[in-house]
């Protein structure tokens, strides 16, 4: 609080508050009541796309990282290739490849069209979720490779000397140590993932960003919806940062 009480900061805060007030008061918000339910749905869709893709992506990143850090070459090479391809191409291209590519392939295969999954596969969100998850897995696979590689050898040797089976070494030693060291990175990467979610609006998934473009198309109002959506993203990013800070504070820390 003390840091905010410097004169120039008070002026800056006043300018910021004035700017927000100016946008709120002089902007054209007549569209807001009509689109409010859509905005709510959009926020919800953004959140579950983010949460699910982070969870699926991270569970894929674990084997990807482990294979690269300590796997045999026939597992390490494909994992490395996967990460390189995902990190070397734009996410938008990946989303379009999956949606248009798979989406044009599936209707031609009879057993897929007759399966019970077909009503789901005809929608856009499974492709969006798949693309986002694979992208997160690619970036985090690289992060986890570094984390697994940096687990001190002595710890693993000690565990082996105690006669721990490999699976237990992974669950009790490697994974907690690696997870501990990547937690700050993961927070930043999850904010990046949040910033990647609006791309799925291009394949007709109506998340929060798509609502803003819908308002623009319907009413020709450009700035107000974008400002509202920007504010929502800022809040979501803040929540992610706070959440990860809380997670970090729960980690046991080595007494210095």
């Amino acid at each position: 609080m003390r840091a905010l009480m410097m004169p120039h900061r008070i002026v800056m805060l006043a300018v910021a508050a004035g700017l927000v007030a100016w946008i709120v008061l002089t902007g054209n918000w007549s569209w807001l009541p009509k689109y409010a339910p859509m905005i709510g749905q959009g926020v919800w869709r953004t959140i579950w796309l983010l949460v699910l893709s982070v969870m699926i992506g991270f569970s894929l990143a674990l084997p990807l990282g482990l294979a690269q850090a300590s796997g045999p070459w026939y597992l390490a090479r494909p994992a490395r290739a996967f990460c390189t391809v995902i990190r070397g191409t734009p996410l938008l291209l990946q989303i379009w490849l999956l949606y248009y590519g798979l989406g044009s392939l599936f209707p031609g295969i009879p057993w897929i069209r007759e399966s019970e999954l077909w009503p789901i596969l005809r929608q856009a969100w499974p492709y969006a979720l798949l693309a986002l998850s694979l992208s997160y897995a690619g970036y985090e696979g690289e992060v986890m490779r570094g984390a697994f590689a940096s687990v001190p050898r002595g710890q693993i040797e000690a565990a082996r000397a105690m006669g721990m089976p490999r699976r237990k070494i992974f669950a009790r030693i490697s994974l907690p140590l690696a997870f501990h060291s990547v937690l700050p990175t993961l927070g930043g990467e999850t904010v990046l993932q949040l910033k990647a979610t609006p791309l799925v609006a291009t394949i007709t998934v109506i998340e929060i960003y798509a609502v803003a473009s819908r308002v623009r198309q319907d009413t020709l109002i450009t700035y107000e919806p974008l400002f509202l959506v920007a504010a929502i993203y800022l809040m979501l990013a803040g929540l992610i940062v706070l959440g990860f800070r809380w997670l970090e504070s729960r980690q046991p820390r080595r007494a210095a």
Binding site: T84, V85, R87, G88, T89, P90, L93, Q94, W96, L97, Y100, G101, S104, L105
Partner: peptide
Amino acid sequence: AGTTKAFFTFFIAAGVIYLVISM
């Protein structure tokens, strides 16, 4: 891709171009 309906051909070709640039 949209005009020719050869989605995989073009998206993979573009992916290869981006990959080569990044490598």
